[in-house]
């Protein structure tokens, strides 16, 4: 094995993976770039031009609710013996994946489009992810209650109700 830095660029949903590979290649011109794609997907010509190695993820998606899949991914990543693990966004889920990768350090693109270091300690990553899941559930139930309980009275309906002296549904 050569002594070049082994960098894994983890492809997840979203735009701009090839552009990110381009930036990565410019930032680390001598590194060995491992392009990691979801199971069943292919590498585009543009992406292949930057890749020294293509690695397929063991599954299509990952969630904290499916630890088996995460374990498979962690095993694949650790077998690849990475020096640097790069993800597309600083999302809590990708932070968790970075923590599982076994790489010495991790980086990502911030939402302001800057390359930043990504903390890889597992417990804080899991705590952030757990809090996000709770927030998501609260958001969903708020939408559910608003949609189910607060109707939009249609113009005809309003006229009929007013004619019968009934109160309008709460707006």
């Amino acid at each position: 094995m050569s002594g070049a830095l082994r960098i894994c660029a983890f492809r997840s949903q979203g735009w701009g993976y090839a552009t990110r590979l381009h930036h990565l290649r410019r930032r680390y011109p001598d590194a060995r770039l491992v392009v990691m794609i979801p199971k069943g997907e292919t590498v585009s010509e543009q992406e292949a031009a930057y890749a020294d190695e293509v690695l397929e993820q063991p599954h299509e998606t990952y969630s904290i609710r499916k630890p088996g899949k995460l374990w498979d991914l962690a095993r694949t990543l650790r077998e690849a013996r990475l020096d640097l693990f790069v993800v597309m966004y600083p999302s809590p889920r990708l932070r968790l994946v970075a923590g599982l990768s076994g790489a010495r350090r991790a980086e990502c693109w911030s939402y302001q489009n800057l390359i930043i270091a990504l903390p890889t300690r597992l417990l804080p990553a899991m705590a952030v992810l757990g809090w996000r899941i709770v927030q998501g559930q609260l958001r969903f139930w708020r939408c559910w209650l608003t949609t189910r309980l607060r109707r939009v009275p249609m113009p005809g309906e309003v006229d009929k109700m007013e004619a019968r002296g009934l109160r309008m549904p709460r707006r």
């Binding site: 999302s91 809590p92 996000r132 927030q135 998501g136 559930q137 939408c143 949609t147 189910r148």
Partner: peptide, 18 residues
Amino acid sequence: CRRCTLHYRGREIARARP
């Protein structure tokens, strides 16, 4: 349409980052 959106996009609404 409001109910349809909730039904079909509910999982995404509940996602950590929609």
